[in-house]
Design a protein around this nucleic acid. Sequence first.
DNA 1: GTCAAATGTTTCCAGTGGAAACATAATGGT
DNA 2: ACCATTATGTTTCCACTGGAAACATTTGAC
Lengths: 207, 207
Amino acid sequence: MRTMKSKQVRAAYHHGDLKNALMETALVQISRTGVRALSLRDVARRSGVSHTASYRHFSSKESLLAAIAEQGFRRLSAAMRAATLPHADDPVAALQASGVAYVEFGVSYPEHLSVMFSVQLAHAHYPGLAQASKEAYALLTAIVHDGLRTGSLRGTEERTITLAAWSIVHGLTQLITGGQLQTKDMPSMSARELALAVTTLLHQGIV
Amino acid sequence: MRTMKSKQVRAAYHHGDLKNALMETALVQISRTGVRALSLRDVARRSGVSHTASYRHFSSKESLLAAIAEQGFRRLSAAMRAATLPHADDPVAALQASGVAYVEFGVSYPEHLSVMFSVQLAHAHYPGLAQASKEAYALLTAIVHDGLRTGSLRGTEERTITLAAWSIVHGLTQLITGGQLQTKDMPSMSARELALAVTTLLHQGIV
DNA sequence: GTCAAATGTTTCCAGTGGAAACATAATGGT
DNA sequence: ACCATTATGTTTCCACTGGAAACATTTGAC
């Protein structure tokens, strides 16, 4: 009984999983007030901990953001992987599915997205982040590579095609989550529908 | 002689054009330290003025950023207009030219760009900003409209095509200026070359 | 010239990120 | 079972920030 106290009863001094708690609280606050207004002290306060406690887990505010960004890239990769799984034999379908997944991820986790890209997070200083971002990119490259190999995609430059595919879904996601489409006369389409429509245009061309 | 003092000799008390001076200083600082680290006090200091002086021209730090964003959209519109001028009779060429101009603008003025989109600038609170942003979008819409009318663009949904064109150049610009391409194995192409390559793919399709 | 409006300054406040020194809890070797 | 080491949190401090309020100076319209 007595020995369980620290684990069960409030864990007075040692939180138990403060690192994750801080990240989650930060995400909640980002979704409420935006990254710009995020305050370490506020996050700590809401986690029931002194503001300097976070320095045991993150060397700075930026490094907390980097951890969130890394987590975001990991989840993005997972989402893209899951989306392409059913289309292992059809690179074109896989490419579109991963693009749709990209957009849907961004719309579902705008806080992650804003941290992933808003921050001028010197990737050099955060190797984990750099690797996670590279991994997501590698997924796309692999699909394009496959499409070119099997002849279902045309064009010569693998990297250019990858960049085009990445750009169009990235741009669409940014425009949606940035609220840029609200003020325009955009049709009331879901993110998925917009993503499908736009990627279809890239596939088929518009000229 | 005496009366010219205030205009010629340092203008001790009244700066003369503090509003623009603050904006320019802010842009310089943003390019050095990023939007996130921008400090009003620092901007004021470098402009040789007390930090509260800016409140005579901007009601808050955010409103200074909104002014910069608005200026950015104005310049973006101007750049796009200039780029499309030579192609008044060829909507397809005009569309690509405006896309390339978009990317080149972003690469040339990354500080403006970061403010224009990074900020969750509630457009509702800044009507001038909202209008400037709408105007840039209207330029693209007009070109697409023209292309559909003359039959040089195909597809049914004008807004979807516009969104695709916007997304791909916006995304590419964000990826370039965000340094996202650095860590990948991207070819050492100029922004203009990347923009040309990517927009060409959208025009011709990749399937 | 005078006087109101525009523009800039001084002073103040609460809040912020981070460093340093201290306090407490968990753990592993004896 | 003990105790020293190591992880984890706290307290206190600092320089800095955005902004409000009250005050000072300049300018321009009449």
